[in-house]
């Protein structure tokens, strides 16, 4: 099965409970107070097994990019279908390119791919809510938890494409010290299968 087998769903047509948690098309604000509009179209995932069987790119399964812990809203965590913004397939292409450049397996942490706006870590708008960010905690056998490895692989990620942003090493709010955060900004993707987006 590949991503094309996933059903595309208009988030505004979801039931009220899920809409309240996923907030399709809502405006949220980033850490600097800038307004961002959340994605409206989602892939529908029927089961965890489907997520594990779905390769978005040759080395990245959908399951790895939607793994969250109990900080996620219970309804989204515990009941299927799950919904993930369609841009996750674009993210996987960039991760694939990064993996190729690193010439080693790249591992994305739990809570490090897509998180819903209702996730406890989603205090402000971050590209994780768009499914366009990944927290890479390990490349090959190297755990990214020191300045040298974080800066090395951060620079490498940014070298893959100009769209990629990697947070610098540090302990502050917009820095990282135990993974490489990379994202491609607040990208939304409306697949051809999507119904009227007006």
């Amino acid at each position: 099965m590949n991503e094309l087998a996933l059903k595309v769903v208009d988030g505004v047509k979801l039931d009220e409970e899920r809409r309240a948690l996923l907030r399709p098309g809502d405006t949220v604000h980033d850490a600097r107070g800038r307004a961002r509009v959340l994605p409206r179209f989602f892939y529908e995932i029927d089961s965890w097994d489907q997520a594990k069987r779905t390769f978005l790119s040759p080395h990245f399964r959908l399951s790895e990019l939607i793994s969250v812990d109990c900080r996620e809203a219970a309804l989204l965590l515990e009941t299927f279908p799950h919904y993930v913004p369609c841009a996750i397939s674009i993210l996987s292409r960039y991760l694939e390119a990064f993996r190729q450049k690193a010439d080693a397996p790249v591992f994305v942490s739990a809570n490090g791919g897509y998180r819903s706006p209702a996730h406890a870590l989603s205090q402000v708008a971050s590209p994780h809510l768009w499914a366009t960010a990944a927290n890479v905690y390990r490349v090959g056998d190297t755990f990214l938890d020191d300045p040298a490895s974080i800066e090395k692989y951060g620079r490498m990620a940014e070298g893959v494409a100009p769209e990629i942003f990697a947070k610098p090493y540090g302990h502050g709010e917009h820095e990282t010290d135990d993974h490489v955060h990379l994202d491609i900004g607040y990208v939304t993707y409306v697949p051809h299968q999507a119904e009227d987006a007006a």
Binding site: D69, C70, N111, H171, D178
Partner: peptide, 21 residues
């Protein structure tokens, strides 16, 4: 909380005094 719920294993904590990691 549910005992079967999962928690992200991350070795990074903040001091209760000054928030340092």
């Amino acid at each position: 909380l549910k005992l079967e719920s999962r928690l992200h294993v991350r070795n990074r904590f903040r001091s209760i005094v000054d928030g340092s990691t």
